[in-house]
């Protein structure tokens, strides 16, 4: 009898993990289903250049035009009050080198006196048939790196 009583008094110290594991597996399943595996971002293009792209700050404002000549060369024109202020002709060995040149040209402009005094408010890109969309996005990236937010693309005519 005394042995039986002793057995009844024994405390079961084990934790019941069943519900905990159930909950964890449910959460893992839900998160696996709702997980985003490919991070898709967006580059905003504002096509209403003529009306909405007007300057709002008191700082001197400039407009930038990036005109592709072909895959490896482009012209950058910086305008002030609609008039040509500066022009850069860029010609490189490869499209990748051209993007780097665009980047360094913009960097040079930002470091110049005019660049420090004013701000490029709007930018327009004029594409060419041989320039791919991927290369145009790289050029857009280069412009956005210098905080140029109002970027538009000129709808060009030409054979596809």
């Amino acid at each position: 009898m005394s042995e039986l009583r002793r057995k009844h008094r024994e405390i079961n110290a084990e934790l019941n993990l069943t519900t905990f594991i159930d909950l964890l597996s449910t959460i893992v399943c839900f998160l696996l289903i709702s997980a985003v595996w490919i991070q898709v971002g967006a580059l905003e293009i504002k096509q209403s250049h003529g009306t909405a792209g007007a300057s709002t700050s008191k700082k001197e404002s400039y407009e930038l035009e990036l005109k592709y000549v072909n895959k490896k060369s482009a012209n950058i024109v910086i305008k002030r009050d609609g008039k040509r202020f500066r022009r850069y002709r860029l010609k490189e060995e490869s499209p990748e080198a051209l993007i780097k040149k665009i980047d360094s040209t913009l960097d040079g402009w930002m470091q110049s006196k005019s660049g420090k005094r004013g701000k490029i408010e709007t930018a327009m890109i004029t594409p060419k048939r041989e320039v791919t969309y991927g290369e145009m996005v790289l050029a857009l990236d280069a412009l956005r790196k210098y905080k140029i937010v109002n970027i538009g693309v000129v709808p060009t005519k030409g054979e596809i």
């Binding site: 967006a42 580059l43 905003e44 096509q47 909405a52 791919t132 969309y133 145009m136 000129v154 060009t156």
Partner: peptide
Amino acid sequence: VSSVVISQLMGIVSGQHYSAIQLAVL
């Protein structure tokens, strides 16, 4: 795709009051 195709599409789309175009990128 040629950038000219994209620019022409943008022209069509913005003509229909879709002026805030988001280009999907990775």
